[in-house]
């Protein structure tokens, strides 16, 4: 009876985590290089692992870095597949709204273009630096939480972030030069 109650509680907690964080896991996997067409399968597998490990989750810690660690492992393994290494995201941009030229649609198109540029620039980082960069720069996770989630020393986290910032910036410059129409922000 107690065990059943415990599992009911576990299922309820898992459901809450799934509902509240599916978009986060989905976006994270995308940022870590999982192809759009594979997101559903990889996200599914991520949540299976989350369920399996839920008993070990330290509730005193924030849930997103913990979830990030699962997504990172899945994304790393996903990227080891040779068939995924050829994906440079060029065939993976969202295709919604094409042909729609309303102001909102154009604004959305610009946003998608920027997002695609970020993803392409992220692609230039190796997975380890990419994880630190995404977790700290995009998720705004404090470095101590980030390194705890990734299981790396603090100094390693800092050095990876420093390198990632430089490489990401170089990639943005390179990609923007190659695609002059890309709006990078307010840069002239």
């Amino acid at each position: 009876m107690a065990r059943e109650q415990r599992n009911d509680s576990k299922d309820a907690e898992f459901t809450a985590i799934f509902e509240a964080n599916l978009a986060y896991v989905w976006t994270t996997l995308r940022r870590l290089g999982v192809h759009e067409r594979d997101l559903e399968d990889v996200a599914h597998e991520t949540f299976l692992k989350v369920y399996a490990e839920l008993d070990r989750y330290d509730r005193a810690r924030p849930v997103k870095p913990w979830l990030f660690a699962f997504a990172f492992r899945l994304a790393s393994d996903y990227r080891k597949l040779s068939r995924h290494k050829t994906s440079l995201l060029g065939d993976d941009e969202p295709s919604h709204g094409h042909g729609d030229h309303t102001a909102d649609a154009e604004k959305a198109a610009v946003a998608r273009e920027r997002e695609a540029l970020v993803h392409r620039a992220l692609e230039s980082l190796d997975i380890d630096k990419r994880a630190v960069f995404v977790l700290t720069e995009l998720d705004e996770c404090p470095m101590p939480e980030a390194v705890a989630a990734l299981g790396i020393p603090l100094n390693t986290g800092y050095s990876r972030l420093r390198a990632a910032r430089q490489e990401f910036t170089q990639a943005v410059r390179r990609l923007s030069a190659a695609r002059p129409g890309t709006n990078q922000g307010d840069r002239p």
Partner: peptide, 10 residues
Amino acid sequence: LLGAAKELRG
């Protein structure tokens, strides 16, 4: 640019 890409898209 990064700031514009922080939105979560599920």
